[in-house]
């Protein structure tokens, strides 16, 4: 394995609905609470876990990869496995393989300028820079489960969800170490398009968001014609 270059993508998600990335945990106010991460500085803050966003982006990439290969935007379909790792077999244990990607969790930031500053800083330093993060407002959303037979509320079926308020900004980063230049460009194209497609799919549990790409490094990846086009449409 050789090491050619390091791809870094920074992106921002602006919630267009209440956000929830729940593991089913209950809190005092709600039956289902959104995930709260422990920040390295010790306090707790709502976040989009890395595992969650990786799954969402993987699904997005898998949906488009056949088309991308067909229209010659990406060279080989196995770039999905290289970037996201092989699927875990449902039987037996997966053989450990080196995965050269790192998906950081997304944390809420104060404003767009803060996100731009973080994008211009060092890799993943937003995880250590607690001053840039902002505790978002949250609200409890009540729901009633319907009885399928009569179409009315079931008895005792009131439940509440704890959600992050719309308009909240979440900042995250993706790192990919490519073996060669071609792989670097393919990964950059795949990942930027996958991030851009978050505009058209849920990024959490019934959670819609507007995605914007803040940085693509190195410059040869950012200046690639496909990436440049994606940045023009979905960049900030």
């Amino acid at each position: 394995m050789g090491v050619a270059s390091k791809l870094r993508i920074c992106y921002l998600l602006k919630l267009e609905s209440g956000g929830m990335w729940g593991a089913g945990k209950a809190v005092l106010e709600a039956n289902i609470a959104t995930t709260i991460c422990k920040h390295p500085k010790g306090y707790e803050i709502p976040c989009i876990p890395s595992t969650y966003i990786k799954g969402v982006l993987r699904r997005s990439a898998e949906e488009i990869i056949t088309h991308l290969v067909r229209v010659n935007i990406v060279g080989e379909a196995n770039i999905v496995e290289k970037v996201f790792g092989p699927l875990t077999p449902f039987e037996g244990v997966a053989k450990p393989i080196p995965v050269n990607t790192f998906f950081g969790p997304l944390y809420p930031v104060r404003d767009v300028d803060t996100a731009k500053r973080l994008a211009g800083g060092g890799e993943f330093m937003y995880l250590a820079d607690s001053d840039s993060l902002a505790m978002p407002s949250m609200y409890v959303e009540p729901h009633v489960r319907l009885d399928d037979r009569c179409g009315r509320a079931s008895l005792g079926a009131l439940f509440k969800e704890l959600r992050v308020s719309p308009e909240t900004l979440f900042y995250g980063e993706i790192l990919y170490v490519a073996d060669n230049e071609k792989e670097l460009v393919d990964a950059a194209r795949l990942l930027t398009i996958a991030v851009a497609r978050l505009n058209y799919r849920y990024v959490g549990r019934r959670t819609a968001a507007k995605s914007q790409i803040l940085c693509v490094e190195p410059s040869n990846a950012a200046k690639d014609e496909v990436v440049e086009y994606v940045l023009k449409v979905h960049g900030l």
Binding site: T51, F102, F103, G104
Partner: peptide, 17 residues
Amino acid sequence: IVARIGRGLGRGFGLSR
């Protein structure tokens, strides 16, 4: 340096300074 330690690195685990 920012480095990655342990298991589940692609999923975001193990990021360290």
